[in-house]
């Protein structure tokens, strides 16, 4: 049984029908990616999983239990952490404050302290900037902070929304290498990306989302090789 199972999800923003019967499933230990153009509904899907938007139909099951209708902070407690679109770091707070906020759902002080040390050894730049306001970090550093902060909740599933957004190619490569490392350590990841090429290259399974509907679902390698995807998203 899959760790995350989304079934026939419908989402409305007022009169706009943003998701139409979306079904996806994420197996434990995998990287699953959701690719598609701007406005296809990728971010909306993640926001629904985190409880930031309510679904009008369908169900979301995580580890065998329905989480539809739960509030965002309850979903974090169930084991889903979300690194949002645009990174969503707290710019006026320090890097350390950001990391500690990521662990808000936990009460094991010693565990939190050792996880902060782990973040610092994974991202040494964050250690150097520990006491700086997070808003003074570069885009790539902010993205690292956003990922490190999401991991502070010790999730079973990590949702990543456009980690490559606005970053230089070398930085994007560094971020994707880190995503692969985190996955190799056992973390299940649902990755939303406009950069379909990069996303499909590290994912096990991929979904193509178009105007709120799943158009294709296949093994990531096969999707990357398919003519349709190459034409539409990989520039021929």
């Amino acid at each position: 049984m899959a760790l995350l199972e989304v079934k026939d999800l419908d989402i409305h923003y007022g009169a706009i029908h943003a998701l139409k019967g979306v079904s996806i499933s994420v197996e434990e230990g995998q990287i699953v990616t959701l690719v598609g153009s701007n406005g296809a509904g990728k971010t909306t899907t993640l926001r629904a999983l985190s409880g930031l938007v309510g679904a009008s139909r369908g169900d979301i099951t995580f580890a065998g239990k329905s989480i539809r209708g739960k509030k965002p902070h309850e979903i974090v407690r169930v084991g889903i952490a979300h690194s949002p679109e645009g990174r969503g770091i707290f710019a006026s707070l320090t890097v350390r404050d950001n990391l500690e906020l990521g662990a808000y759902s936990r009460n094991d002080k010693a565990g939190i302290a050792s996880d902060i040390e782990r973040s610092f050894s994974r991202f040494p730049i964050l250690k150097e900037r520990e006491k700086q306001a997070a808003g003074t970090l570069s885009g790539g550093e902010q993205q690292m902070l956003a990922v490190a902060r999401a991991l502070m909740a010790r999730p079973k599933l990590l949702l990543l929304d456009e980690p490559s957004l606005g970053l230089a190619p070398q930085i994007v490569h560094a971020i994707f290498r880190i995503i692969r490392e985190i996955n190799a350590e056992g973390m299940t990841i649902l990755l939303v990306e406009q950069n379909a090429h990069m996303a499909l290259s590290i994912a096990n399974h991929g979904y193509v989302l178009e105007t709120g509907q799943i158009k294709m679902s296949d093994d990531a390698k096969k999707l990357a090789a398919s003519d349709e995807v190459r034409k539409a998203y990989l520039g021929g």
């Binding site: 409880g51 965002p72 902070h73 407690r77 707290f90 500690e100 902060r149």
Partner: peptide, 20 residues
């Protein structure tokens, strides 16, 4: 710390597991 986070952004604070 939760209060300061909620003051900055309710949604992001929720994603941190803060009961807004």
């Amino acid at each position: 710390r939760g209060m300061r986070a909620v003051a900055i952004d309710h949604n992001i604070a929720g994603l941190m597991g803060i009961p807004v």
